[in-house]
Protein backbone atom coordinates (compact mmCIF):
# COMPACT_ATOMS: atom_id res chain seq x y z
CA UNK A 1 0.00 0.00 0.00
CA UNK A 2 2.83 2.38 0.84
CA UNK A 3 3.98 1.76 -2.72
CA UNK A 4 1.04 3.79 -4.07
CA UNK A 5 1.50 6.61 -1.57
CA UNK A 6 3.70 8.27 -4.15
CA UNK A 7 1.44 10.43 -6.35
CA UNK A 8 3.79 10.16 -9.33
CA UNK A 9 3.67 6.37 -9.23
CA UNK A 10 -0.11 6.54 -8.82
CA UNK A 11 -0.39 8.83 -11.85
CA UNK A 12 1.69 6.44 -13.95
CA UNK A 13 -0.39 3.44 -12.89
CA UNK A 14 -3.78 5.06 -13.42
CA UNK A 15 -2.76 6.42 -16.80
CA UNK A 16 -2.82 2.82 -17.98
CA UNK A 17 -5.61 1.51 -15.71
CA UNK A 18 -8.11 4.30 -16.46
CA UNK A 19 -8.71 3.48 -20.14
CA UNK A 20 -8.81 -0.25 -19.27
CA UNK A 21 -11.64 0.35 -16.81
CA UNK A 22 -13.36 2.61 -19.33
CA UNK A 23 -13.27 -0.13 -21.98
CA UNK A 24 -14.49 -2.74 -19.48
CA UNK A 25 -17.33 -0.46 -18.44
CA UNK A 26 -18.55 0.06 -21.99
CA UNK A 27 -18.24 -3.65 -22.81
CA UNK A 28 -19.94 -4.96 -19.66
CA UNK A 29 -22.64 -2.29 -19.74
CA UNK A 30 -23.47 -3.04 -23.37
CA UNK A 31 -23.63 -6.80 -22.72
CA UNK A 32 -25.55 -6.31 -19.47
CA UNK A 33 -28.19 -4.05 -21.01
CA UNK A 34 -28.59 -6.39 -23.99
CA UNK A 35 -29.02 -9.46 -21.77
CA UNK A 36 -31.28 -7.61 -19.33
CA UNK A 37 -33.63 -6.29 -22.00
CA UNK A 38 -33.70 -9.13 -24.55
CA UNK A 39 -32.28 -12.34 -23.08
CA UNK A 40 -33.88 -12.49 -19.66
CA UNK A 41 -37.47 -13.56 -19.09
CA UNK A 42 -40.17 -11.32 -17.66
CA UNK A 43 -41.10 -12.30 -14.12
CA UNK A 44 -44.27 -14.41 -13.76
CA UNK A 45 -45.56 -12.07 -11.05
CA UNK A 46 -43.92 -8.76 -11.76
CA UNK A 47 -44.00 -8.81 -15.56
CA UNK A 48 -41.65 -6.57 -17.48
CA UNK A 49 -41.06 -4.20 -14.57
CA UNK A 50 -38.71 -6.78 -13.05
CA UNK A 51 -36.08 -5.39 -15.41
CA UNK A 52 -35.73 -2.37 -13.13
CA UNK A 53 -33.87 -4.82 -10.89
CA UNK A 54 -30.88 -4.83 -13.26
CA UNK A 55 -30.23 -1.19 -12.42
CA UNK A 56 -31.65 -1.05 -8.91
CA UNK A 57 -29.77 -3.94 -7.30
CA UNK A 58 -26.29 -3.12 -8.69
CA UNK A 59 -26.80 0.55 -7.78
CA UNK A 60 -27.67 -0.43 -4.21
CA UNK A 61 -24.64 -2.75 -4.04
CA UNK A 62 -22.43 0.05 -5.31
CA UNK A 63 -23.90 2.49 -2.78
CA UNK A 64 -22.63 0.20 -0.01
CA UNK A 65 -19.41 -0.73 -1.80
CA UNK A 66 -18.52 2.94 -2.36
CA UNK A 67 -19.16 3.72 1.29
CA UNK A 68 -16.98 0.81 2.41
CA UNK A 69 -14.19 1.93 0.05
CA UNK A 70 -14.60 5.49 1.29
CA UNK A 71 -14.33 4.37 4.92
CA UNK A 72 -11.23 2.28 4.20
CA UNK A 73 -9.60 5.14 2.25
CA UNK A 74 -10.55 7.62 4.99
CA UNK A 75 -9.11 5.34 7.70
CA UNK A 76 -5.88 4.88 5.73
CA UNK A 77 -5.65 8.64 5.22
CA UNK A 78 -6.30 9.27 8.90
CA UNK A 79 -3.88 6.66 10.25
CA UNK A 80 -0.96 6.82 7.81
CA UNK A 81 -1.51 10.42 6.60
CA UNK A 82 -1.60 9.01 3.10
CA UNK A 83 -2.33 11.90 0.66
CA UNK A 84 -3.65 9.74 -2.18
CA UNK A 85 -6.01 7.91 0.21
CA UNK A 86 -7.54 11.24 1.29
CA UNK A 87 -8.08 12.13 -2.36
CA UNK A 88 -9.56 8.70 -3.09
CA UNK A 89 -12.05 9.06 -0.23
CA UNK A 90 -12.99 12.54 -1.41
CA UNK A 91 -13.37 11.34 -5.01
CA UNK A 92 -15.52 8.37 -3.98
CA UNK A 93 -18.16 10.39 -2.11
CA UNK A 94 -20.01 12.00 -5.06
CA UNK A 95 -19.97 8.70 -6.99
CA UNK A 96 -21.39 6.86 -4.00
CA UNK A 97 -24.00 9.54 -3.45
CA UNK A 98 -25.03 9.26 -7.11
CA UNK A 99 -25.35 5.46 -6.85
CA UNK A 100 -27.39 5.80 -3.65
CA UNK A 101 -29.66 8.33 -5.33
CA UNK A 102 -30.02 6.02 -8.34
CA UNK A 103 -30.92 3.09 -6.04
CA UNK A 104 -33.52 5.22 -4.23
CA UNK A 105 -35.07 6.55 -7.45
CA UNK A 106 -35.20 3.19 -9.25
CA UNK A 107 -36.53 1.57 -6.09
CA UNK A 108 -39.26 4.17 -5.95
CA UNK A 109 -40.13 3.63 -9.61
CA UNK A 110 -40.23 -0.12 -8.98
CA UNK A 111 -42.24 0.27 -5.78
CA UNK A 112 -45.09 2.11 -7.47
CA UNK A 113 -46.27 -0.79 -9.68
CA UNK A 114 -45.28 -3.55 -7.18
CA UNK A 115 -46.23 -2.17 -3.77
CA UNK A 116 -48.64 0.50 -4.98
CA UNK A 117 -46.66 3.32 -3.39
CA UNK A 118 -43.63 5.39 -4.27
CA UNK A 119 -42.17 5.23 -0.80
CA UNK A 120 -42.66 3.36 2.46
CA UNK A 121 -40.90 4.17 5.71
CA UNK A 122 -39.52 0.70 6.30
CA UNK A 123 -36.11 -0.08 7.72
CA UNK A 124 -34.29 -0.73 4.42
CA UNK A 125 -35.49 2.41 2.67
CA UNK A 126 -34.94 4.62 5.69
CA UNK A 127 -31.41 3.34 6.32
CA UNK A 128 -30.47 3.84 2.66
CA UNK A 129 -31.87 7.38 2.85
CA UNK A 130 -29.66 7.95 5.90
CA UNK A 131 -26.72 6.65 3.84
CA UNK A 132 -27.52 9.26 1.19
CA UNK A 133 -27.52 12.02 3.82
CA UNK A 134 -24.23 10.69 5.22
CA UNK A 135 -22.68 11.05 1.75
CA UNK A 136 -24.02 14.60 1.49
CA UNK A 137 -22.74 15.44 4.98
CA UNK A 138 -19.33 14.03 4.05
CA UNK A 139 -19.18 16.15 0.89
CA UNK A 140 -20.33 19.28 2.74
CA UNK A 141 -17.86 18.82 5.60
CA UNK A 142 -15.02 18.05 3.22
CA UNK A 143 -15.44 21.39 1.45
CA UNK A 144 -16.28 23.47 4.54
CA UNK A 145 -12.72 24.31 5.55
CA UNK A 146 -10.29 26.77 4.03
CA UNK A 147 -7.51 24.25 4.57
CA UNK A 148 -8.19 21.13 2.45
CA UNK A 149 -6.24 18.80 4.78
CA UNK A 150 -8.49 19.83 7.70
CA UNK A 151 -11.53 19.09 5.56
CA UNK A 152 -10.10 15.68 4.65
CA UNK A 153 -9.41 14.77 8.31
CA UNK A 154 -12.74 15.99 9.69
CA UNK A 155 -14.76 14.27 6.98
CA UNK A 156 -12.72 11.07 7.41
CA UNK A 157 -13.83 10.92 11.05
CA UNK A 158 -17.42 11.51 9.96
CA UNK A 159 -17.14 8.67 7.42
CA UNK A 160 -15.89 6.32 10.16
CA UNK A 161 -18.74 7.33 12.48
CA UNK A 162 -21.25 6.82 9.68
CA UNK A 163 -19.97 3.27 9.11
CA UNK A 164 -22.28 2.29 12.02
CA UNK A 165 -25.08 2.53 9.46
CA UNK A 166 -23.64 -0.12 7.11
CA UNK A 167 -24.60 -3.26 9.09
CA UNK A 168 -28.01 -1.71 9.76
CA UNK A 169 -28.62 -1.37 6.01
CA UNK A 170 -27.32 -4.86 5.26
CA UNK A 171 -29.38 -6.64 7.91
CA UNK A 172 -32.41 -4.34 8.02
CA UNK A 173 -34.40 -6.79 5.86
CA UNK A 174 -33.59 -9.67 8.22
CA UNK A 175 -34.03 -7.86 11.55
CA UNK A 176 -37.32 -6.14 10.81
CA UNK A 177 -40.44 -7.17 8.97
CA UNK A 178 -40.17 -5.01 5.90
CA UNK A 179 -41.93 -4.62 2.60
CA UNK A 180 -38.52 -4.77 0.94
CA UNK A 181 -37.63 -8.35 0.07
CA UNK A 182 -34.61 -10.02 1.65
CA UNK A 183 -31.48 -10.76 -0.33
CA UNK A 184 -31.87 -13.51 -2.94
CA UNK A 185 -28.39 -13.45 -4.47
CA UNK A 186 -25.95 -13.53 -1.55
CA UNK A 187 -27.05 -16.56 0.47
CA UNK A 188 -25.39 -19.45 2.21
CA UNK A 189 -27.27 -22.02 0.14
CA UNK A 190 -26.51 -20.38 -3.21
CA UNK A 191 -28.45 -17.72 -5.06
CA UNK A 192 -32.24 -18.16 -5.12
CA UNK A 193 -32.50 -16.60 -8.53
CA UNK A 194 -32.53 -18.24 -11.93
CA UNK A 195 -29.28 -18.03 -13.97
CA UNK A 196 -31.13 -16.26 -16.81
CA UNK A 197 -31.71 -13.38 -14.42
CA UNK A 198 -28.52 -13.76 -12.41
CA UNK A 199 -26.21 -13.32 -15.40
CA UNK A 200 -27.46 -9.91 -16.57
CA UNK A 201 -27.47 -8.81 -12.93
CA UNK A 202 -23.83 -9.80 -12.45
CA UNK A 203 -22.85 -8.20 -15.78
CA UNK A 204 -24.48 -4.93 -14.73
CA UNK A 205 -22.82 -5.13 -11.31
CA UNK A 206 -19.46 -5.61 -13.05
CA UNK A 207 -20.19 -2.65 -15.34
CA UNK A 208 -21.09 -0.42 -12.36
CA UNK A 209 -17.94 -1.47 -10.47
CA UNK A 210 -15.71 -0.76 -13.49
CA UNK A 211 -17.46 2.58 -13.95
CA UNK A 212 -16.68 3.46 -10.35
CA UNK A 213 -13.01 2.51 -10.76
CA UNK A 214 -12.82 4.51 -14.00
CA UNK A 215 -14.34 7.64 -12.46
CA UNK A 216 -12.21 7.19 -9.36
CA UNK A 217 -9.03 7.14 -11.50
CA UNK A 218 -10.18 10.25 -13.38
CA UNK A 219 -11.16 12.18 -10.27
CA UNK A 220 -8.06 11.37 -8.23
CA UNK A 221 -5.85 12.20 -11.22
CA UNK A 222 -7.54 15.55 -11.69
CA UNK A 223 -7.21 16.27 -7.95
CA UNK A 224 -3.49 15.54 -8.08
CA UNK A 225 -3.11 17.74 -11.15
CA UNK A 226 -5.09 20.52 -9.45
CA UNK A 227 -2.72 20.30 -6.47
CA UNK A 228 0.27 20.62 -8.80
CA UNK A 229 -1.30 23.61 -10.56
CA UNK A 230 -1.94 25.28 -7.21
CA UNK A 231 1.65 24.67 -6.10
CA UNK A 232 2.98 26.11 -9.39
CA UNK A 233 0.74 29.18 -9.09
CA UNK A 234 1.98 29.75 -5.53
CA UNK A 235 5.58 29.52 -6.71
CA UNK A 236 4.87 32.04 -9.44
CA UNK A 237 3.10 34.38 -7.03
CA UNK A 238 6.11 34.23 -4.70
CA UNK A 239 8.45 34.83 -7.61
CA UNK A 240 10.44 31.61 -7.13
CA UNK A 241 10.50 30.72 -10.81
Amino acid sequence: MQYFANPTRFMKLTQRLGPLFAAATVLLFGLGVYFALFFSPADYQQGESVRIMYVHVPAAWMALFCYISMVIAAAVGLIWKHPVADLAAKATAPVGAAFTFLALVTGSLWGKPMWGTWWVWDARLTSVLVLFFLYLGYIALNSAFDDPTRGARASAILALVGAVNLPIIKFSVDWWNTLHQPSSVVRLDGPAIHPSMLWPLLLMAGAFTCYYMWVLCLRVRSEIIAHKVRALRLRQAHGWE
Binding site: L134, A140, A144
Partner: peptide
Protein backbone atom coordinates in the same frame (compact mmCIF):
# COMPACT_ATOMS: atom_id res chain seq x y z
CA UNK B 1 -16.05 18.17 13.61
CA UNK B 2 -17.36 21.57 12.51
CA UNK B 3 -14.97 23.58 14.71
CA UNK B 4 -13.36 26.28 12.60
CA UNK B 5 -15.42 25.55 9.50
CA UNK B 6 -17.48 27.96 7.46
CA UNK B 7 -21.26 27.96 8.17
CA UNK B 8 -20.84 25.65 11.15
CA UNK B 9 -24.45 25.72 12.37
CA UNK B 10 -26.18 24.57 9.19
CA UNK B 11 -23.43 22.06 8.53
CA UNK B 12 -23.86 20.63 12.03
CA UNK B 13 -27.53 19.88 11.42
CA UNK B 14 -26.71 18.17 8.10
CA UNK B 15 -24.14 15.96 9.81
CA UNK B 16 -26.03 15.14 12.97
CA UNK B 17 -29.72 14.84 12.09
CA UNK B 18 -29.32 11.62 10.04
Amino acid sequence: LVLGSRRGGVLLSLLILP
